[in-house]
Structure formats: C-alpha cells, structure tokens
C-alpha cells in the first residue's frame, strides 16, 4: 500500500474517532434539551446557567478537537513537519 493511502487511512481513522466523540457530546446536548429541558436552567459556575455553559462549551470543544486532529494528521506527500499548525 502506498505511503499516500496509508496517511489518508490514518487521518480518516483519527477523524472518525474525533467525529464520534463530538457526536456523542452534541447528541447529549440535544437529548437533554428535548427530554429534560429543566436541567438547562440550573445555575452552574459563576451564576451562569447550564444552557450558556454547554452551548459555549460545544463551540470550544469543536475548536479543541480540530486542533488535536491537526496535530495528529499526516500529509500525503513527504513534507517536513507539514502536519503541524503553521
């Protein structure tokens, strides 16, 4: 198998893992809103409720996972350090 498709497969595996992790969190957020909406109004940290924290949290986690993926992904061609940010 070529270097190229090995890298692509590795990236795809990583991508799917992170995708399912995020899907789990996102589905959890939707599930709580649909089945137990009262949880969302509970005050959490700093007098700010669960709804605001979980919403902002989902946005922050998306960015965190994206950076993690960038760190782990490899390029298809032989570039020095090409997988890093920048």
């Amino acid at each position: 198998m070529s270097q190229s498709s090995l890298c692509s497969q590795r990236n795809a595996r990583w991508g799917l893992r992170l995708f399912f992790l995020y899907l789990f969190l996102y589905a959890g957020f939707i599930g709580v809103n649909a089945l137990a909406p009262e949880v969302m109004s509970h005050p959490w940290w700093g007098g700010v409720n669960v709804a605001i924290w979980s919403g902002m949290g989902l946005i922050a986690v998306a960015f965190g996972l994206a950076v993690l993926y960038l760190y782990h992904a490899e390029d298809d061609h032989h570039e020095q350090g090409g997988s890093q940010v920048g």
């Binding site: 991508g15 799917l16 995020y22 899907l23 996102y26 989902l58 946005i59 998306a62 994206a66 993926y69």
Partner: peptide, 12 residues
C-alpha cells in the same frame, strides 16, 4: 451551536 457543529463533519 448547530452551524458550528456542522464543521466537525466537514473537517473529520
């Protein structure tokens, strides 16, 4: 929240 989450599908 939903619009941003969609980018996870796009990226991963």
């Amino acid at each position: 929240i939903g619009y941003l989450a969609g980018w996870i599908v796009a990226l991963f």
